[in-house]
Simulated scan of single mutants.
Amino acid sequence: MKLHDVSWPSEAALKGGLLPWLETLPGASWLTLPGRDPNRHRVIVTLLHGNEPSGTNAFWHFVENTPECAVTTHFCLANVNAAKTNTPFTTRHLDGKPDMNRCFGRQGEDDSYEIADEILARITSLAPEAVVDLHNTSGTSPAFAVSIRDDDTHKQIASLFTKNMLCSDVRLGALMEMTSETSPIVTIECGGAGDRAAHDVAKKGLNDFMTAENLFQGHTGFWPIEMLYRPVRIQMQHDSALCYHDQKIDDADLTLAPDIDRHNFGRMAADTHIGWLGGRGLDALKTDDGKGGHPIASLFYEKDGELKLKAASKLFMITTRHDIALSDCLFYMVVD
């Protein structure tokens, strides 16, 4: 077994603090809090990416201030080994290992796939009434939810945390893609990994998620949901060079401003300057919308070496981390 059942932290562990306790974990860990109704379950997954701390920060808050849960509530801390490598909460996944949130419903020889399978098997066996998977964006961003369904059930879960929800056709092997009628799964992007407000989003949302008697009717204080549909994933071609700078870098295929994440969830007008292209032009970029549409030339154009928007759009999950931009994506976008 790669998923370890771990006891709720003791009083001594609480006094020692989160990071020393995290060091004691044997790997991917599952913890359970009893609730008033022991026959109903809810699941909180976090740390699928080791550099996204808000969910774990919120977990430790509830270790210190344990609420009375309405139902039996389970926490899964997934990529613990990445989280405690080097400077804590800076490593997305270990070198040579896949992104764990690309391993659900997929086959591979690395033990990350085994962990994903065991997490999914545990969720299936419990048949929880709701699952939230907490993440952070690598750039500064407001909170938003992501789902592959836009029905009321998924919206009501999202509304505990945020007013923004994306409904995506992109399939990457993420946990949220394993959602079902009986156990809906929603991803919550709490905000930027370095934003204190993101920790507050996680704590407030999880408190409501854990204590509400009924998540799907009559819960108070939730956000009205604004839906965005069919986000397009913008990526670099695998052999392209990327640079972040406030002016064009000649040997880069794409240069983006160091503070480009300031545009997260802001509406950008047609013809807005996004960055600078190199000699390969638009061929340095590619898209994925889950359905084979939206070629690069339908979204952007080049003028005097500048990369510009063809139509008004919203960009989100913009990263300023070079490694994540190359291994995952530059950003997502929805055309107005």
Rank of each mutant, 00 (worst) to 15 (best):
E64F: 02
N65H: 15
N65R: 14
P67F: 11
P67D: 01
E68G: 07
C69H: 11
C69R: 07
A70P: 12
A70M: 14
V71A: 09
T72M: 06
T72G: 07
F75N: 09
C76A: 13
A78I: 04
N79H: 03
V80F: 05
N81H: 08
A82K: 04
A82M: 01
A83S: 11
K84Y: 02
N86G: 15
N86P: 05
N86S: 15
P88Y: 00
T90R: 12
T91D: 00
T91L: 06
R92C: 06
H93I: 05
H93N: 14
L94D: 04
L94W: 03
K97S: 11
P98L: 10
D99L: 00
D99M: 06
M100F: 10
M100D: 00
N101H: 04
F104H: 08
F104T: 04
F104S: 02
G105L: 02
G105K: 00
R106K: 15
Q107R: 11
Q107N: 13
G108S: 09
D110L: 13
D110V: 05
S112Y: 15
S112A: 15
Y113M: 03
E114W: 12
E114T: 14
I115Y: 02
I115S: 04
A116E: 05
A116Y: 03
D117K: 13
D117S: 15
I119V: 12
I119G: 04
L120F: 05
A121Q: 12
R122S: 11
I123C: 00
I123S: 05
T124Q: 13
S125V: 13
S125C: 10
S125D: 14
S125Q: 15
L126V: 02
P128H: 14
E129W: 12
A130T: 08
T137G: 13
T137W: 10
S138C: 13
S138R: 14
G139Q: 12
G139I: 10
T140H: 15
S141V: 08
A143P: 02
A143G: 09
A143M: 04
A145N: 10
A145L: 01
A145K: 07
V146L: 08
V146W: 04
S147V: 02
S147Y: 06
I148E: 10
R149S: 10
R149A: 09
D150I: 05
D150A: 11
D150C: 10
D150E: 14
D151W: 00
T153S: 10
H154C: 09
H154G: 08
K155M: 12
Q156R: 15
Q156K: 15
I157S: 03
I157R: 04
S159A: 14
S159N: 02
T162R: 03
T162L: 09
K163N: 15
N164D: 12
L166K: 06
L166Q: 12
S168G: 01
D169S: 12
R171F: 06
R171E: 05
L172R: 15
L172D: 04
L172S: 09
G173Y: 04
G173M: 03
G173P: 05
G173V: 04
L175C: 01
M176H: 15
E177R: 08
E177K: 10
E177L: 03
